[in-house]
């Protein structure tokens, strides 16, 4: 014995309509049941029943129409989402709501700034610092043309020079800290240092601090862009909301 197609249809409709308000659902099931009673009465053969069911539409479609008419959100069916007439293009948003180009801007600035201390090797190995400066400058252009940050934040990120504050600092300090080793007439070599050098206890933490500054600044700017994106309703998953 083959299962009754009408009973199967009603079972699917009952299942699909579970999320509708009870009153709406009861009305819908009653109306469709009455309709199918008429179909059963008029049908001469099983093909008539199948044709009538086809014309009725899929249960999910009917439930979606009922949800639309009552203003309740449609159930998560396999229907295409309704076309949006205006608003944000969802393609612009990525996880966290920050636009990809803003992530790239911060990435380039931080990369350029962190490896910027390679400026020191400009004479020895020019390719590395030139790449870093190129990345940095590209990032700065993207940064200033973005609407994700305030002018103050953009200035902060711009002041994180290649190498952070380290570059001017080291450029200023290095030439003054020169050591020369000469052979002493009495025997062993004697090293004399002129000028000012930072003791390692101060110099190393300072170096770490100034090179990590761009990373910290970049992180802060990304977090702020992320929060603003959430606050202004640019689509993005909320599960990763900061704070």
């Amino acid at each position: 014995m083959t299962p009754d197609p009408i009973a199967r249809f009603l079972a699917r409709l009952e299942q699909a309509s579970a999320a509708l308000p009870a009153e709406v659902r009861a009305d819908l099931l009653e109306d469709i049941t009455a309709h199918l009673d008429e179909v059963r009465r008029e049908a001469r053969a099983e093909v008539d029943v199948h044709a009538a069911l086809d014309r009725l539409g899929r249960p999910e479609e009917i439930v979606a129409a009922a949800a639309r008419e009552t203003g309740t959100p449609p159930p998560p069916a396999d229907l295409p989402p309704p076309a949006t007439e205006a608003g944000h293009g969802p393609s612009e948003a990525v996880a966290g709501g920050v636009r990809p180009r803003d992530v790239v801007a911060i990435g380039l600035v931080v990369f350029g700034a962190v490896v910027g201390w390679a400026l020191l090797f400009l004479v020895v190995q020019p390719l590395m610092p030139i790449g870093a400066i190129g990345a940095y400058l590209t990032g700065i252009v993207l940064l200033w043309s973005s609407r994700a940050w305030t002018p103050g934040e953009k200035l902060l990120a711009t002041l994180v020079w290649p190498g952070g504050i380290a570059t001017p600092l080291f450029l200023a300090l290095l030439p003054t800290g020169m050591c020369t080793t000469v052979a002493d007439p009495s025997g062993g070599p004697v090293t004399t240092c002129t000028g000012f050098t930072l003791p390692p206890l101060v110099g190393i933490p300072l170096f770490v601090a100034v090179t990590s500054a761009p990373v910290i600044v970049g992180g802060i700017l990304l977090m702020r862009a992320h929060r603003r994106a959430l606050a202004t309703g640019v689509p993005g998953p909320r599960s990763r909301a900061a704070g």
Binding site: D27, I32, H35, L56, G57, R58, E61, I62, A65, R68
Partner: peptide, 8 residues
Amino acid sequence: SEGTIYPL
């Protein structure tokens, strides 16, 4: 889809 007339 005729079924959508009933919700209407």
